[in-house]
Design a protein around this nucleic acid. Structure first.
Length: 420
RNA sequence: GGAAGGGUGGCAGAGUGGCCGAAUGCGCUGGUCUUGAAAACCAGAGUGCCCGAGAGGGUACCGGGGGUUCGAAUCCCCCCCCUUCCGCCA
């Protein structure tokens, strides 16, 4: 939710932000409603005040006395007036809320204005893609791929995009999850296992609803959604909470499966493990004081980058442009790993600062120096998404004899040097 | 899924139609007293919104939503959640 004060005092900034982000929402309708809403609120309040005063008088009169009956008679009129105003207030407020939920967050000033991926800025890179063997293969073309990943089995049992991971690959997934979680714990994140289904209020607070409803699998019978990322249940754990300042920053890490409908995806993007409907991911979430949030974003990004470095996978860091960052995002970095077989970059992590946007929607606050509650800032990052990490390892670590070499750091975890 | 009992301020807990934003106790904050602490005593203390430069004032909130009534924490209806028992089940 956008800050109402900002919207009132600086409507052009918001208008520009909406345009830069390529979202549409009816700001003019909000401005009109805002005036109307305040007027009705004030009038309702005044009428209600008169009613309460009259009630206090009646309370002192003997029940059934002539004065009592006379007074009641006059108060019926007032009661009608109050009811009418309250009805109007409800209607205006509901519409106002509906519209407010469609206004995206404002991009931070450091975010480049742009319309598509060509306008993203590479801010850094690590490792050398050239070191990957020239005859590396896309993971889905490797002879061992069929042994490790059973796409056809998934299609039979569920549908496209729900692969079975088999044998050494399943073991590698388990290894990676443990490694990721251990790294996060060492960096100070408290591990939690959240629910994999969330209600509509949760999906609204983090910004999936109403903006990205089509992305989520739904269980209509129970009014629940399968989580597209652990961000949703994690962030919502502290919905309607007031933190004491000493409790921040708060850091959590969670491993969860993630479910995404990915409607409209096609072609090379969905081959092999590049994009699937169900995947495993380890997610980091932080709740921080507003004044620290952009520093916290950098350290969060480093937490994700460290994992890629330890895995010895070449990657680059992109600062996403205004047109590419999501609805609730103020600033977002994507970490893209080099997949030497496909000779392309695959996004394995997205590191984001949502500033106070999710906190306002979810009513997540801290008590400030002034003793009053204020919205916290929320951030999150993947560390990391499993399938594309697997793809990168398969493609970059192929030996001449056809075996897949494990990153050094995983050998003690996995117990062997090669994926067998 | 069925039955019964419940959901009130940080916690416990009173309140069954009007002066209840809500007793009381505990906890918390400040003060008095004390060399210091404890005890005792005094005072304060929720969140949102509206009006106001401010002081302050108003209003809403007793799980959520609707209804009855001049007036609802209190009565009625629907939903959610918790506890216990039964059923089912990893």
């Amino acid at each position: 939710m956008i800050d109402l004060k900002l919207l009132r005092e600086n409507p052009e900034l918001v208008r520009e932000a909406v345009r830069d982000k390529k979202f549409t929402c009816d700001l003019d309708a909000i401005f009109d409603l805002d005036v109307n809403r305040r007027d009705i609120f004030t009038r309702t309040q005044e009428a209600r005040s008169r009613q309460k005063a009259a009630n206090a008088e009646v309370a002192g009169l003997p029940k059934g006395s002539p004065e009592f009956l006379e007074k009641i008679k006059r108060m019926k009129e007032l009661s009608q007036e109050v009811k009418e105003l309250q009805k109007q207030q409800q209607e205006v407020d509901a519409e106002w809320n509906r519209l407010m939920l469609t206004v995206p967050n404002i991009p931070h000033e450091s975010v480049p204005v742009g319309k598509d991926e060509d306008d993203n800025q590479q801010v850094s890179a690590w490792g050398d893609p050239q070191t990957v063997s020239a005859d590396a293969q896309p993971h889905y073309d490797l002879p061992v791929f069929k042994k490790f990943v059973d796409l056809a089995g998934g299609v039979k049992v569920t549908g496209a995009g729900f692969p079975f991971i088999v044998g050494p690959m399943a073991r590698l997934v388990r290894t990676l999850l443990r490694f990721f979680l251990d790294e996060a714990a060492a960096a100070g994140y408290v591990e939690v296992m959240p629910p994999l289904l969330v209600n509509a209020a949760s999906a609204t607070a983090t910004g999936q609803l109403p903006d990205k409803e089509a992305q989520m699998y739904e269980v209509p019978q129970d009014g629940l959604y399968l989580i597209p990322t652990a961000e949703v249940p994690l962030t919502n754990l502290y919905r309607d909470t007031i933190f004491e300042t000493g409790e921040l920053p708060l850091r959590h890490v969670a491993y969860t499966p993630c479910f995404r409908r990915e409607a409209g995806s096609y072609g090379k993007d969905v081959r092999g493990l590049n994009r699937v409907h169900q995947f495993d991911k380890v997610e980091l979430v932080k709740w921080v004081l507003p004044e620290n949030s952009f520093d916290e974003l950098e350290s969060l990004r480093m937490d994700s980058e460290n994992i890629l470095q330890k895995l010895n996978l070449p990657y680059r860091v992109l600062l996403m442009c205004s047109g590419e960052i999501g609805f609730p995002h103020a600033k977002q970095y994507d970490l893209e790993v080099w997949a030497g077989g496909q000779k392309r970059w695959l996004e394995v992590s997205s590191c984001s600062n949502f500033t106070d946007f999710q906190a306002r929607r979810g009513n997540i606050r801290y008590r400030g120096q002034d003793g009053r509650p204020h919205p916290v800032h929320t951030l999150n990052a993947s560390a990391l998404a499993i399938p594309r990490t697997l793809a990168a390892i398969l493609e970059n670590n192929l030996e001449a004899d056809g075996r897949i070499r494990l990153p050094e750091v995983l050998i003690p975890y996995y117990g062997e040097k090669y994926l067998t």
